[in-house]
Design a protein around this nucleic acid. Structure first.
Lengths: 338, 338
DNA sequence: CTGTTAGCGCATTCAA
DNA sequence: TTGAATGCGCTAACAG
């Protein structure tokens, strides 16, 4: 049915080696025979079978992208960035969504095999020793995004510094009662950045000689609704905060919703600071920490191509910048009486 | 390096045929030898090479998903739905983003080949005759979503009826000056649904004995910003509309933004009706036509599996329901004076 | 410059 | 019940 390299060879009256040479420019071919081959290819509408080529070359020309919590807007933004590079290369993108530990372990022990993908881009997943062992076994080029690992190439953010800068900004506005709503520290996929952002929060307070009150620390899940519920709780306190910093924009959007429901004016009665700068953040005029999500995806793929083609001895590591984006959910303390 | 079926056979002291039989349960194996094979597999941490299996079986166990305008929220929602099914099957998902005609033609003439994917899921793309020809040539199972084609399986919406219902709702609220902001009718990827929704708009007016004014028809692009610009234009008219219906939620969000800038109260001075029900629509309390985006992705993959496994003679076709979601951007006319 | 051949790793048929 | 041989379509080494 679909024609093969043999059909082309026969049609052109040459051997299959010559056809292959024309296809891949792998060795010089006399112009005359090249033309014969090319027209045979055109007549038969031939295109080399991908499976055959994969097996023969031992390459898949496929990049696997592993994404936890595919429902999160920030992950989609990164994916878009990664896609924009891959679509212009001659690689395919295979997508693996991971929503729980079972799926993570299944993906991490079946996907990184020769013959499956040439390289792996892993988003926001702290790897277990078992996971790492699997990767090392097969020597599959791997790049981590938004996580670090001493033995793997990665692209990471300085979460401590970024969170610290954000909270210092709130302090400089005059705020003293600043709550932090974190994501679950027991997340199955790891919580290094959760720890780090909290650390940044603490460092900011200490740098300004303010005390860290454990009572100002709360945890939500990564859904907007959770942020709303936690905020409703906090904002009903007799001595409620004048500012809330959250682990993610999703949580912050929930906080905004809660404030609206309680008739609390943002930013005059309450400042809200998010983290991520997802598309919705702009719509909600949310002050937040920008992660350059799209750009991260782009650079992740570029780093992965580097690892695949240049096979560096040591893992590549690169820190990415973050920026504070001031919008309209933060304001100086005391501008407003209620 | 990575072990092969031969290594396993040697380790277990059997032939490779036996190992293959154990792996695929393709023929009975004596329990004793099965155990020997299984423990050899465990010892060597063997997993069959995907490329070898693909070539031998002539199947890729990969579903290709083609998505135009990967930046659009509604497409992501559908993708999530599709992913939720594929991740639990033993298929991989290969993603192909298509942002322009060049990319569309490249993808549609290189991807649907044997050895590349076993099936193709195509979102929101009106196919050209050339595109169709490519698909037919290779007989690759294909399912279209949000487009129709007599010769291909597809999942579609009754855009005419849905738009009509939406506009009739506005009319029933008392509105008479109802603008429609469409997307570009010259979109390179096709405009059947753009035509259909406009048709529904016209039908609604005619059914209520109202006239269709060409002046009430505008076009934007699919970005929010475009919706905003068009709306700014419309809302400054001396005889501005009391209601605006848009092709997409993105456009509607732009309209809301414009109204806010001009100090026009929604819904009391202006009703706004979107289309899609993306996640943001809920956040913006936008009245809209729900497309069940996630569910569409789910059903698309299920239909594709049907086509792949049962090879029906005729293309499968299924109409999907749409619902009007009333939120807070529409209100009866005349409740408010300005 | 080009035709032939030997694998790549597997599933499967044919013998035994 | 099992081992050996064949072929999937291709690339690359080998030989001319």
């Amino acid at each position: 049915m679909a024609s093969t390299i043999h059909d082309v060879a026969k049609q052109a009256g040459v051997g299959i080696g010559t056809v292959s040479s024309v296809l891949n420019n792998s060795r010089p071919v006399k112009e005359n025979t090249r033309q014969k081959v090319l027209s045979a290819i055109a007549e038969l509408d031939f295109m080399p079978n991908s499976s055959g080529r994969r097996l023969s070359m031992g390459k898949t020309h496929t990049i696997g992208v592993v994404i936890p919590y595919f429902t999160i807007a920030s992950q989609i933004e990164r994916l878009r960035g990664a896609m924009s590079v891959i679509v212009e290369s001659n690689y395919d993108m295979s997508l693996f969504s991971v929503e729980n530990i079972r799926q993570r372990d299944k993906v991490l022990q079946t996907v990184p095999r020769r013959g499956r993908v040439d390289g792996l881009l892993i988003f926001s997943l702290d790897l277990t020793d078992d996971n790492l062992y699997q990767l090392q076994q097969e020597k599959i080029p791997t790049v981590l995004i938004e996580t670090t690992h001493p033995q793997l190439s990665h692209l990471y953010f300085n979460d401590v510094a970024a969170a610290r800068k954000a909270v210092e900004y709130l302090i400089d506005l005059g705020h003293r009662k600043i709550f932090y709503i974190n994501e679950d520290l027991n997340d199955p996929f790891g919580s290094v950045n959760r720890h780090n952002r909290y650390l940044g929060y603490c460092q900011a307070l200490q740098a300004k000689n303010l005390q860290v009150y454990p009572a100002y620390y709360r945890e939500g899940w990564h859904r907007r609704e959770k942020g709303r519920l936690v905020a409703l709780d906090i904002l009903k306190l007799p001595d409620r905060p004048t500012a809330i910093f959250t682990f993610s924009d999703e949580l912050a959007l929930g906080v905004l919703q809660a404030a609206q429901e309680l008739g609390i004016n943002v930013p005059h009665e309450l400042s809200v600071m998010g983290y991520d700068d997802i598309e919705l953040a702009q719509f909600a005029h949310l002050t937040t920490v920008q992660q350059h999500l799209f750009e991260t995806g782009v650079q992740g793929v570029e780093m992965l191509f580097n690892v695949i083609h240049k096979k560096p001895d040591l893992p590549l590591q690169q820190e990415l910048p973050t920026d504070l984006i001031i919008r309209q959910t933060t304001a100086p303390l005391g501008n407003y009486k209620h």
